[in-house]
């Protein structure tokens, strides 16, 4: 109506009414955007959580809340804030049994998980909806197909210094260690690269694209699918280890056999 009417000076009351309407619209818009982007706004409104996140929240409030506090805020000196860590980190820590932690220590080790992988994903979903963060880029247990050769190149440059060429792990400082990748699933490998648990560096998507990560996963799983001649790989360190082993064990065995024969005659 207004657009079609001929131009004439508006009355004061009308100008005021329009200004008030504009202000109201701006407030609603700002409030709406704030509600969309603010994690606290979501956190304080459990009604907006998805069904999976609701389940996760129930688990969280029985098993995680004593260290990580209400809504994942964290407790100084006990458990860090989980806002922004993302579902990938939660899934990794819970599925490998590192969380819930049994005790504080230099390094949390893999142990039998307390939650099954469905529950781990529900927990992840809850933390994801609380504060966002990195997520595993594929659904299901199997990572998409990767290029084993390229994955091998990436593994040797980025991973082998700590996890060894054979993915069997290695020592770090002060009793910490890079674990063996033997029990790791595709999802756990992906989440570990993406989030850098504990002392592991983070390999974000800008450095290693999801496809690069699939390549690394393909390489690691291929490496693990191989068997060792003779059945005992000795960490796959190669001929030097094997030589030392046969020298130490074989020679000692022979020496005792010789002593035994001499002692019997």
């Amino acid at each position: 109506m207004v657009a079609h009417s001929p131009r004439r000076p508006r009355s004061r009351a009308r100008r005021r009414a329009i200004a008030a309407l504009r202000m109201l619209a701006a407030l609603v818009l700002a409030g709406g955007i704030y509600a969309l982007v603010s994690p606290n706004a979501q956190a304080n409104a459990p009604g907006q959580l998805s069904a999976a996140a609701q389940e996760g929240r129930a688990l969280y409030e029985t098993s995680c809340i004593s260290c990580h506090a209400n809504n994942g805020q964290g407790v100084e000196g006990r458990g860090p804030s989980l806002i922004g860590v993302g579902s990938a980190a939660v899934e990794f820590q819970v599925e490998t049994g590192r969380m819930p932690a049994a005790a504080q220590g230099a390094q949390l080790e893999r142990k039998p998980p307390q939650f099954n992988s469905d529950e781990a994903r529900q927990l992840g979903q809850y933390i994801q909806e609380l504060g966002g963060g990195p997520e595993i880029a594929f659904q299901g247990e199997q990572a998409p197909k990767g290029d084993i050769a390229h994955g091998g190149e990436l593994f040797r440059v980025n991973c082998s210094s700590c996890h060894a060429f054979s993915a069997a792990g290695g020592a770090l400082s002060s009793g910490k260690f890079a674990p063996s990748l033997e029990p790791s699933t595709d999802r756990q490998l992906y989440a570990a690269m993406l989030t850098g648990p504990q002392n592991m560096p983070v390999f974000g998507d800008n450095q290693m694209s999801p496809q690069d990560k699939y390549d690394v996963i393909a390489y690691v799983q291929n490496l693990k699918s191989d068997t060792d001649p003779g059945g005992w790989g000795l960490g796959r360190f190669g001929p030097v280890t094997e030589g030392v082993a046969i020298f130490l064990f074989g020679m000692v065995l022979l020496a005792f056999a010789a002593l035994w024969i001499a002692g019997k005659s």
């Binding site: 440059v157 850098g196 983070v202 974000g204």
Partner: peptide, 20 residues
């Protein structure tokens, strides 16, 4: 990077990340 040609931008590395 290791391929010898790909230049690196600061944002390529995450906090707590490393690259050779």
């Amino acid at each position: 990077r290791e391929d010898g040609v790909t230049a690196i931008r600061p944002e390529d590395i995450s906090v707590g990340g490393q690259i050779t």
